[in-house]
Design a protein around this nucleic acid. Structure first.
Lengths: 131, 131
DNA sequence: TCTATTTAGGCATTATAGTACCTAAATAAA
DNA sequence: TTTATTTAGGTACTATAATGCCTAAATAGA
């Protein structure tokens, strides 16, 4: 069981974009990336549709086609990718969306908020140019 | 979107056991706890079936029934509860269960492992007696 | 004994993520 | 121009987690 919350989709997005960034300016195909990551080609294709719509990559169809980064690798953080795949992160509120808490001092306040902030800052700091 | 991985079930287990611990030796009912936590009574009842089987609570049926802790609050950590609800945690491996990694140094090694270890130690440290 | 309360357990329903499939569009190469 | 390749997008299927519902069992109290 995984302690951090990262779907297969977000995992694929982060890892495949890192590979795309590494091989710039060469285009990479979904087929190639799926083999490289030992992942489902169908799922990865869906992920890249999302990444394309979100403006992270440019696509070229046909033979010798594939994906390249649309923005410089320095300008794409893991947080950007995470939010594109999983939706926007909202820190500062109860991580479970509760408006009412049975505890005067939430039993999670001290620790869970610290950890959430840590993950947030970590994702924000890591950039595709780091690979 | 929540950065840490904690299901509604695990959230309910941690919070309701904290309330049970606080009100010892009085028994608490699922109905009471559901109101207190503003949560689904049906779901909480399921959670307590799991907690009962896992040996965290003793149950008494019928009027004036409810749940009490079976073990001292000092001996129950959030990690114990988490694992009872979500399954055993395995640190030290790829958090996504991959045996093959496309990166010589996994892009997550430094940070994700640090954060996972942090969450693990935090859950391990927090005990029901802390409330 | 009877009734109301409360947990136990099984089953059904719902939501979501993941996967698969099919067709269209684009394009490089033969 | 034709063919093979590859992304785009829609739809549908599957698996699993989460949630809800119903009935049985237990038990305190009237």
């Amino acid at each position: 069981m995984n302690l951090i919350n990262l779907s297969e989709g977000a995992y694929l997005a982060m890892h495949s974009l890192a590979l795309v960034a590494k091989s710039q300016p060469e285009r990479l195909t979904v087929k190639h990336l799926a083999e490289e990551l030992d992942a489902s080609q169908a799922h990865l294709a869906k992920v890249f549709q999302t990444l394309h719509k979100a403006g992270f990559v440019d696509s070229v169809r046909g033979p010798a086609g594939g994906f390249i980064l649309k923005k410089p690798a320095e300008e794409i953080s893991f947080l950007d990718i995470y939010e594109a795949m999983e939706g926007p992160v909202n820190l500062g509120h109860c991580p479970f969306g509760k408006t009412k808490c049975a505890f005067h001092n939430c039993i999670f306040t001290k620790d869970i908020h610290r950890i959430s902030a840590d993950i947030y800052q970590t994702y924000k700091r890591i950039r595709l140019s780091d690979f």
